[in-house]
Design a protein around this nucleic acid. Structure first.
Lengths: 196, 196
DNA sequence: TCCTCGCTAAAACGAACGTTCTATCTGGAG
DNA sequence: CTCCAGATAGAACGTTCGTTTTAGCGAGGA
């Protein structure tokens, strides 16, 4: 049975690998990110990577997607918790994404997007990405319902909110400009405003 | 000097390679698509590929992006030409994208998106993707101005229109459902409707 | 002390990558 | 016919990929 200290060490190295994988994959996609590079950047060895992820690159990628799902979900939730109006919260969220992007040279985009498009033919990967998107939509949808929007309208709006955030972040990265995210925030406020 | 027949043959083979490259890259991204696979699928040999594209994979990818830029630009333009209301045109465009996606098993998404995210660190590739996005925004913006929307509002709306189409197409691919694109079309109609 | 076991370290595998090279083919010009 | 540039064909290069394998480390349990 593991001691009380060993698991901490274990999770530190493991989490370092997962975090690095997520960051690299959101910068250069799934195919573009090598396992050896992940190990090097995470200051771990190849042996450690395959020790924690016997399933290889795919298992690591699935874990990284789940990690990123939680990361962005927390950003959504905290934005919605800070602002009481859902529209203002989504605008704040868009602006936060723009700040993050500008801070790291427009490299770290949506963690799931870059990986998703390359791995749609793999059922497991696609399912993981779909789970992330559905999770995020659920957070937005709940907040909208709590804000007085009807159940059906809220679910539909959640689709568009997540879609426009994804698309605007991509646009901002390609253009190296926060403009797409800024106007997306304004338009989301305007769109959500028509539902009250 | 080339004869009048030889260039036709030349362009046929060349275009076959470009078209195949664009299709494969929109399915599996830049890194995930090998040059040898492109040659095989295009029924050309490796020698032909490097004959027409001495710059190798990158030059071919840049050409494929330009090809895709025109392809989606034409879809935008034809939708705007068919419908007289820009909002209805964008909704029709979203529905057309949904039909295409469903027809090919949700594989052929936006040609630029998949490539863009992996190659943001390459200035030439990023510039090509940015050029495509800007081109598409220009088409939408012009149509909005022609529809009576103010110049500044039209430019801002063009950002969001393209962003939401990109994001909704990605969402639809991952979910294997046209829903994201359908609601995106409805919400675009609604958003554009507030500007008249 | 010895032994075990979670973990690290590094070498090595076959396969596939992008690219280069040489050889062959084809069809119009001289 | 000869000739040659455009185009095709395919072998081969070195590198890097994901993965496997083997050896070594270092701290608890008996």
């Amino acid at each position: 049975m593991p001691s009380t200290v060993a698991p901490v060490q274990e999770m530190q190295t493991r989490e370092r690998i997962v975090c690095t994988a997520a960051r690299l994959m959101q910068r250069q996609g799934y195919e573009g990110t090598g396992i050896k590079l992940i190990a090097r950047e995470a200051k771990a060895t190849l042996g450690s990577v395959y020790h924690f992820f016997p399933g290889g690159k795919k298992e690591l990628a699935l874990t990284a997607i789940a990690f990123s799902e939680k990361e962005f979900g927390d950003l959504l939730a905290s934005s919605l918790a800070t602002e009481n109006d859902p529209g203002a919260a989504m605008q704040a969220c868009a602006n936060t994404l723009a700040e993050y992007l500008a801070a790291d040279g427009w490299a770290d985009g949506c963690p799931v997007t870059a990986t998703a498009l390359e791995t749609l033919d793999d059922p497991d990967m696609r399912a993981a990405c779909e789970h992330a998107f559905a999770h995020w939509r659920g957070i937005v949808s709940e907040a909208l319902v709590a804000g007085g929007v009807g159940e059906q309208d809220a679910q539909d709006l959640a689709y568009t909110v997540i879609s426009v955030l994804e698309g605007a972040e991509l646009t901002a990265q390609v253009a190296r400009s926060p403009k797409a995210l800024e106007v997306a925030g304004r338009h989301l406020v305007r769109l959500l405003g028509t539902y009250r």
